[in-house]
């Protein structure tokens, strides 16, 4: 009886000890994972802050304008280019003149030959093609010169 109790006790001690060590190692492993995840998370957060700043930098209107000037031939949007209702949309080209809602808000007609004007050299009336008596005259002169010389003006 006594001996059985002793053996049982010893067995219990061994089982408890092994169990305890297993548990402890498992906990330590989890903790390592947790710390790793945490430091990864911190690193990612730092990276996100840097990327946000870089995103802001790369989307800076100043920088975008430089790129636009270098690679695109785009200028500020003219009022005549903005259509705020469906009614303002022109119909097919042949009917365009009749359907246009107003004499002032007309779509700029495509130039026959593209000029090499760059955005920096353009004035607003170049884009609108309307208003400003002396500018309008300049514009039409430009357009004619453009058709004649094949677009090599300025």
């Amino acid at each position: 009886m006594n001996r059985a109790l002793t053996i049982l006790g010893l067995a219990a001690v061994v089982v408890a000890g092994v169990g305890l060590y297993q548990l402890k190692y498992a906990v330590e492993g989890q903790e390592r994972l947790f710390n790793q995840a945490r430091s990864d998370f911190l690193e990612d957060q730092k990276a996100i802050r840097v990327l946000k700043a870089e995103w802001s930098y790369l989307n800076s209107p100043d920088y975008l304008q430089q790129l636009t000037r270098r690679y695109l031939r785009l200028g500020p949007m003219a009022p005549s280019q903005v259509m705020h209702t469906l009614d303002d949309l022109p119909w097919r080209a042949s009917d365009a003149d009749r359907i246009m809602p107003s004499s002032e808000l007309v779509m700029p007609e495509p130039r026959l030959a593209p000029t090499r004007k760059r955005y920096t050299d353009m004035t607003l009336s170049d884009l609108t093609g309307t208003s400003g008596s002396e500018h309008a005259l300049d514009d039409s002169a430009d357009a004619e010169a453009g058709t004649g010389t094949g677009g090599g003006s300025e």
Binding site: P76, M77, A78, P79, S80, V82, H84, P101, S102, E104, L105, L124
Partner: peptide
């Protein structure tokens, strides 16, 4: 001319 389209002010007749 540059900011009106950005600010959502559409040209009106």
């Amino acid at each position: 001319a540059r900011i009106a389209p950005l600010l959502g002010v559409s040209p009106q007749q």
